[in-house]
Design a protein around this nucleic acid. Sequence first.
DNA 1: GCGTTAAGAG
DNA 2: TTCACACCGTCTC
DNA 3: GACGGTGTGTCTCTCTTAACGCCA
Length: 562
Amino acid sequence: MPPIASAQSQPVARTVLPDPLYYLANFQRVIQRVYERYDDLLSTEEQDFYRRLQLLSGDAQALYVRLLTRKGPLFRTSKLRYQEISDQSQAVADLVAQQLVIQPSEINLLDTFPLFTKQEWLELLPGAAAQRLAKAALVPLLQSLPEPVQTIIEQQGETLIQLNSSEHFATFCLLYFSNGRQDLTEFVLRDLGVYRYENYSLARATRVFTHREQIDKMLAYYRLRDVLDDLASLSREEILALNTQLPAIACSQQQDKCRGNTLVQRRIERLRLRLARQLERLEAWQDALALYRQCQQQPSCERQVRILHRLAQHQAALKLCQQMFDSPSEAEQTFARQFHPKLLKALGQAATKPAPPALNEVQLFLTAGDSPNVELAAAQSLSVSGDCFYVENTLFLSMFCLVFWEAIFADVPGAFSNEFQTGPHDFYEEDFASQRSQHLESGWRKLEHWQRAPDDLIQVAEQKHGIATPFHMGFMPAPELLKLAITRISLRHWQIIFERLLRDLKENRNGLPDLIYFPNTGGYELVEVKGPGDRLQKNQLRWLHYFAEHQIPCQVAYVQWQ
DNA sequence: GCGTTAAGAG
DNA sequence: TTCACACCGTCTC
DNA sequence: GACGGTGTGTCTCTCTTAACGCCA
Ligand SMILES: [Mn+2]
Ligand SMILES: [Mn+2]
């Protein structure tokens, strides 16, 4: 059960923000910016929401923001006490006048129950018997009383208020951040220095959503996503009903290739993919197929092929599988090649499984208990003859960001719309590179330069350390590692790796080997460690095959404990 | 009392 | 809201 | 053994406090 916040406790010493009304300033910034930028796309309710906010006193606005950032929607006014709000009663009255807060007349016991402590509820239940029960077990006892909520409110001398119109603020946040994930805490964490964002240009910032329809679909998406939290408990009929609630894919406006449209479309498709996957679990194959056919994104095709195979519709499966040979996605191509023989065999045709390229595989015998995990144990054993680092994706992704920093944060139209972005909106789009060819060129030259002047790389890494990138929240590899990497890995190898990353940042940003090993004898080697029972994953295989194809030194080390 | 969990806040 | 691993059951050789 | 599917821990900002349930 949610605990009740204490209003009496005094704030403890902590990092201090200069303005005690910092949260109000942040709130106003969001509201104002969205009101200006999305003026013509706001509904009349949202416009009115803005207007009502403007009519509030400072105290009332501040209190409203406090309520927005606390768990509600019901509050005990006695639990709201803020130093910077001088007249709380007046603030509440102002909010009530603008309908931003409601004084509820009739309140459900179940909604009120969490607001009061077990002790407080027990005052309504005479006798020692109830004392021993768990708090939740008091509910049926309280329900048998005439007016439990009214009684406890009077007994505690309490006033309850209910936050209203908070959904409009959620919409404003969606428009400010262009997603439903970030909120006012972004401002605080940035001001505290927890998050640091690159100081990219917002001079040409534009809005992401261009039609009201996109906004409504985004809002519908977030509502439905919450419903899908307990997807596993839904029946086939319920899932199909949810599917019909998904907004139509195509915007009735022309199907622009603008960001807003693609964003909405992909979000909704991801929900449909989840629904289809659940239909598979329920063995509703035809329904699942029907939903998958409406989806462009992965793994739609793969799932369809698998279902058709399971339904013994091998011709249809084969046809779709062969189409996947030409997929722009390497992952889809690989799946198609591997699944193809199975289908041919099912159709009675001769099938030859493509021999996978040979990998450099070795056994590594380690004594158990040295280290908490296999990767570190393997790294430790390799360290006797060189330097070894447990890097996984971090080394190459961080280096990618450092090398192409100017490209990533370049002032490309439509790339940035607010100050809390880890990267441009089109980072994972196909034309990310072509939109920034000049900047990428200078990145390649910078890489060459850093090979001759590693200290320059280390200096830039230090400078960018802590700044959020599309891949992670700002961690850069240690200088020793950077220096070894930039000097031991040849320019050609860097190019080969970065070219693959640039081909498909989303698909190739993972699966890089666990370790990088720099032997004392020179050179380097990438090492994927596999403990007993672990196997190479598909994304790891794709990288390893690519490395093998381009003579990039790598091996798979199978650890056996001794 | 003690450990767990969650709210709240900067 | 990501990524990599651990584990389990089934199919195949 | 290969392979698919699923669960899990890890990310998560960090710190303080209160409520709750369990145990002695
Ligand atoms: Mn790993
Ligand atoms: Mn590994």
